[in-house]
Design a protein around this nucleic acid. Structure first.
Lengths: 151, 151
DNA sequence: TATTGTTATACTCTATAACTATA
DNA sequence: TATAGTTATAGAGTATAACAATA
């Protein structure tokens, strides 16, 4: 009989709590993304480009979307096929790829955004506006302070 | 020119904040799991079984680990191959599979647990004990209050 | 008939390494 | 030589459906 040393109860561990919370949050948005044939990761890329407002190079986009470069490459190929993004070589450094939202991509985001915001407001209403903002603040602080390898 | 309606800044959205925080937390544990040839999901299963203390049926285990049944089935097959878990048919309901940590599985968890707890303590130290517990409480409350489809 | 779990299938992401082109 | 990005490859998870066995 091997006795297992003291460990935090599984369900109360931080990684599980974060996963569970993310799962709950994503349950609001998944049907919407599915309607528009977008994976969560594809939507992350479109959102990041929308927020950026002008072109981002692939490295910066990977960092902002928390995707690995090879994953991003394939996702961009798909989004490019569907006409949602354009990729151009950076004239000042030809190793870099500049990624931009195409007009069609912007239209796609514009179609999804209102419903997405409605769902977000629903979360705010159910959880409480103040609580949600406190949670967000705490999450951002955690990311800032606890990152063992801040890039 | 398609104008995109008002949306929350991408980096400040709850799903991204949760993902980012989880990424930061997991950076502490990934090297340890890799050392022991365990994926995050396999470790979740072993941890859940350790916490449960006695056998769980596959459905309950899937719920606790936030894994889909087909994913869990394959993961259990792998853990079974490595001798970390045992699967037996529930005598009181032969449709059910009861999953238990084997002695070898318990030994594996026991080997990893001290280092895992050390890393957890490191997170506590860096982020702050009080802040961490407040964050956990907020995450649990969110999961309870915001779940659109509580099982 | 409904439920439990597994298997089948297709798709996607992860992760590492190798490769190409450019700096 | 180092960097940026893509491609190659292997492994794994996601998601839906179909299936077998049991209740």
């Amino acid at each position: 009989m091997t006795s297992v040393p003291e460990m935090r109860p599984f369900a109360e561990s931080l990684p599980m709590a974060l996963l569970q919370a993310r799962e709950v949050a994503m349950r609001y948005f998944r049907p919407l993304l599915a309607e528009h044939d977008l994976t969560e990761q594809q939507w992350r890329v479109l959102r990041a480009l929308t927020s950026a407002d002008d072109a981002l190079d692939a490295g910066e986009l990977a960092a902002r979307t928390l995707l690995l470069a090879p994953s991003l490459s394939r996702i961009l190929a798909h989004l490019d096929e569907r006409g949602f993004v354009t990729r151009t070589i950076d004239p000042t450094d030809q190793r870099r790829t500049l990624v931009e939202l195409s007009p069609l991509g912007a239209k796609q985001v514009a179609q999804i955004a209102p419903e997405s915001e409605r769902l977000y407001a629903e979360i705010e209403a159910v959880f409480g506006d103040g609580e949600l903002h406190a949670l967000l603040e705490s999450l951002h602080q955690f990311a800032r302070k606890a990152d063992p390898d801040p890039s």
